[in-house]
Structure formats: C-alpha cells, structure tokens
Amino acid sequence: MNRRELLRNSLLTLGAAASVNIPVDALVFASGDDASRELARPDWTPAFLNPQQNETLISLSETIIPATDTPGAKAAFVNRFLDLVLSVLPAETQREFLDSLTWFDTGAMARYKANFVNLSDAERQDFLNLVAWPHTHVRWGETDANFAGYGHFERMKRWVVSAYYSSPVGLKDLGWDGWPARGIFKGCEHQPGEHQDAN
C-alpha cells in the first residue's frame, strides 16, 4: 500500500467511526451518486437544443477544445451538459446563448456557403482565427470597432470552457486523479535568501 492509499484508508476509518444517525431532511448524496453518468447515456436526447443547434455546438466546442493527446469537448459531453444547464436558466440567458451559437452558422454560411458543421477542418480554423482575438477592424475613414464575432466567440468559449473543465475528462486533463488526500503541502523549499530576484 502506498502512502496515499494509507492516508485514504485512515480517512475512511475515521469517517465510519464518527458517523451518527443522518437527519431525515438532510441533503445526503448516495455513495457513488454521479450525475455525469446521466450525460453519457447512449439514449441521451437534448432537453433544450434542437438537433441542428446540438450538432453546431458539438462542432464548435470541439474546435475550441479539440482532442489532442487528451480527449476534447465532444468526448467530455460538453454539449450535453450545456443543454442540461441551459434548460433551467432564465429565458434571457437562453436567448443570448442561442444568438451566439446561431451567429456561427450564419457567419459560416456568409463566408463559406455552408453551415458550421459542414465546414472543413481548415475552414473552421480559418473562421475561428478571424473571431478569436480581441482585434479591431480599422480602415481609412472608419472609427475603431470591435468585430461583432469576437463577443459571440467569447461567450461561447466561456460556456464551453466551464463545461469542459468541470467534466471528468477536463479535470483529468488538469491532472485530477481522483484521490481526495494529497499529502502534505510543502510550499517553498528554497533556502532563505534563495529568491535572489527579491526586489
């Protein structure tokens, strides 16, 4: 047994010894209760998005966070989680989300004569490169203006990022290993004065 396992086992024993009767009205999560499993069901259907919106979201989210050496947004069911959350959020929030999502289809149609999902990988890269940076379009005789697409991109990115990095896949990408006990916080182990860059 390694040190982490020892720690974990000692924690479990402590918890068991201390348990008392559970108050009837308490919020208690059943052991192994895992809402993310619902999202992984093969018979999953969207509660909020229509099929086209769902496909656009899968494609857009995977472009923002693609599979690399670790899985991307699609494998993390980012679309499914966002569908669930949006289904219970206020109408105003839902409308803003759909406005931005739809903007990507409209924009793709205008520039590439195809819906976002039907773009080639190169076209998707090209399209997002146009909108992913906070640049302004400045021309002779025109005032500075933020390109409208940047706002839509930022909004969709915020949603996708929050869903991805709270998923099992995203947390694993950040190093999460499922262990509750992490050993002792060691902090700075330099000798006094070793931070020579101290101003």
Partner: peptide, 12 residues
Amino acid sequence: SPKEFTEHKPVF
C-alpha cells in the same frame, strides 16, 4: 451528520 460531508466529491 458527517455523512453530509462532500469535500471529496468531484464537481461533475
């Protein structure tokens, strides 16, 4: 009750 503690429950 300690059964309500969730400090080790991952957010997903």
